[in-house]
Structure formats: C-alpha cells, structure tokens
C-alpha cells in the first residue's frame, strides 16, 4: 500500500467513527419532539461518550497486549481483568452497595490482573505463555465464584448478567469522566512505547539485541493495558471481541507499525462500539439488548474467517 492509500485509509477510519457517533446520537426509542434536547444531552451524549471511551480503551489495549504477548490473537481479557471486574460488580450488587458497582468492578479487574501477573512470575520460564496460562486459570476460578454468587442471589442475576455481556445502562457521569482520563492517558503513554512494541514482536532475543529491556517494558505496558481495560469495563461492562477484532482490522489495512496501530485502534474501537451500542438500542426498541451481544454477532464470524484464512 502506498503512502497516499494509507492516508486515505486513515481518513476513512476517522470518518467511520464520526458517522457512527452521529448515527448513534439520532438513534433511539424516542422520536423528535418536545424534550428531545433533554434526551439528547442527558441520555444519548453521555451514553455515546461512554461507548466511545470504552471502545477506544479496548481497541488500544488489544493492540498493546497482542504485541506484548507476541500473539496477534490475544484479547484484552486474557489476563483475567474482565472476570475480576465481573466479580467486583457482583459483590457490590449482592451486598446492596450498588453505588460502588463501578469502583468495585474497576478494583476487581486490577486485583485479579495483579494476581495473574504475580502467578506468572513464579513460573520457571518467564514467557508470555505463562501469563496467558495464569490468566486462563484465574479467569475460570473467579468466574466460578461469580456464578456461585449469582446462584445464591437470584434477584440480582439480571443486573450482573447485563454487566457481564456489556452494557451502558448503569454508567454514572463520574465513572465516565474517570475512565476517559485514564484511557486517554493510557493511549498517550503507550504511544511513547510504539517503537519498542514494534521491536518486541520480533522475538525476545532480537528485541534485547536491539536494545529493548523486554521484561521491564512488558511489565509496564501490561499494567497500562490492565488499567485501560479496567477503565473500559467500569463504563461498559465486559464487551467481548472489540479488543480482538479492532486491532486486527487496523493491522490488516494499515500494517503493524504500532504508532499508527494504537492510535487508530482507539479511534476505530470507539466508533465500532458506538455503532454496535446504537444497534443494541435501536434494533428491538424500546427493548434494549446488551451491546456485547451485538459485538459477539460481529466477532464470532470474523474469528471464524481468521481461523479459515489461517
């Protein structure tokens, strides 16, 4: 792809996201009429903003994790962040502390990710694989606990379930602001590491020989990605597939250079989640389905395509 084509593709990613935002702002159960501007400013704008922030965080952290783990098929949830957040929210919900749901989800995600990282550091060979394995183990364990809580607290099941499939129904303005700042900072910070991420995909030995302190860099960026994922989960719940598909599409079109990849995964991830959330609200209006269900409907066939294509 030549230089001009690349510029046009970059522009198209921005355009897609802008159109998605407009589409989402004018989609919904309420028609135009008196009270429209109230709905617009107090319901739709915050919601679209939340979807954009969450999608941007997932897209960028997906790009980051795929490079750190040297695996283009890694997803932001490999490290147990989502399972931890799910447990945090479930605990807050059943103890009646619903105001604390978002912070609890955020904290839960970070704590479990921390445990996963600690577990991986005990393994003899400190490879990215041990991190993935520790993540799988902790995710299953933590999810089992969450499900047990749900079984014993049937009245809150619906709320927890919505959170675990990704939804923006319960987001507070304060949580949104907090996550937006966190995710923006995370993106800027990881852009500083873009060149090192490029080099790290070339294998550990080569990365060291090119002057990258891999274990330190991996740790720092892993923490940054966990913060971004937790920020996303705090406003959107556990939305699957965005962090996997988005960097893939961007990489396929624009190549692997991380400076472009991280930035455009954030832009496209934001637009993509805004779009899917608009569908989630609009398709069966006035009934609303979790946005995560729509992303899964996009994600599963896409994953299958990757599988067949090799």
């Amino acid at each position: 792809m030549n230089y001009m084509d690349k510029k046009i593709s970059i522009l198209l990613f921005f355009l897609f996201s802008a159109v998605a935002v407009l589409f989402a702002l004018f989609t919904g159960a309420a028609g135009w009429g008196p009270g429209s501007s109230y709905i617009m400013w107090n319901i739709r704008v915050p919601r679209v903003a939340a979807a954009f922030v969450a999608g941007a965080g997932l897209g960028a952290s997906g790009a980051l994790l795929q490079a750190i783990l040297k695996n283009p098929l890694a997803a932001p949830y490999v490290a147990g962040t989502s399972a931890g957040a799910g447990l945090g929210v479930a605990l807050a919900a059943v103890t009646g502390l619903t105001v604390l749901e978002t912070p609890a989800g955020f904290a839960g995600g970070l704590i479990v990710t921390g445990i996963v990282f600690k577990m991986a550091s005990y393994s003899k060979r400190k490879t990215p694989e041990s991190l993935v394995l520790a993540g799988v183990v902790m995710s299953s364990l933590v999810s089992a606990v969450t499900f047990m809580i749900m079984v014993f607290n049937r009245d809150t099941v619906f709320r927890i379930l919505f959170f675990q499939t990704g939804s923006f129904q319960f987001v507070s303005q304060r949580a949104l602001f907090f996550s937006a700042v966190l995710i923006t900072a995370g993106i800027v910070f990881s852009l500083l590491y873009a060149r090192e991420l490029d080099v790290m995909t070339q294998g550990d030995d080569v990365a060291v020989s090119l002057g990258v302190e891999i274990s330190k860099t991996r740790k720092v960026l892993f923490a940054v990605s966990a913060l971004m994922v937790s920020g996303s989960v705090a406003v959107a719940g556990v939305v699957g597939f965005v962090g996997l598909i988005v960097p893939h599409v961007v990489r396929f079109i624009l190549g692997a250079t991380h400076r472009r990849l991280i930035l455009l995964s954030a832009v496209f991830g934001g637009g993509f989640l805004v779009f899917t959330d608009a569908l989630a609200r609009g398709l069966f209006a006035p009934m609303e389905i979790p946005a995560g269900i729509i992303t899964a409907f996009f994600g599963a066939p896409f994953f299958l395509y990757l599988l067949i294509k090799g």
Partner: peptide, 8 residues
C-alpha cells in the same frame, strides 16, 4: 525469526 506481524 517469528513472522506473526505484517511489518514491511
């Protein structure tokens, strides 16, 4: 060398 990422 591993080639999982499409660098030119």
């Amino acid at each position: 060398s591993p080639l999982n990422f499409p660098f030119t």
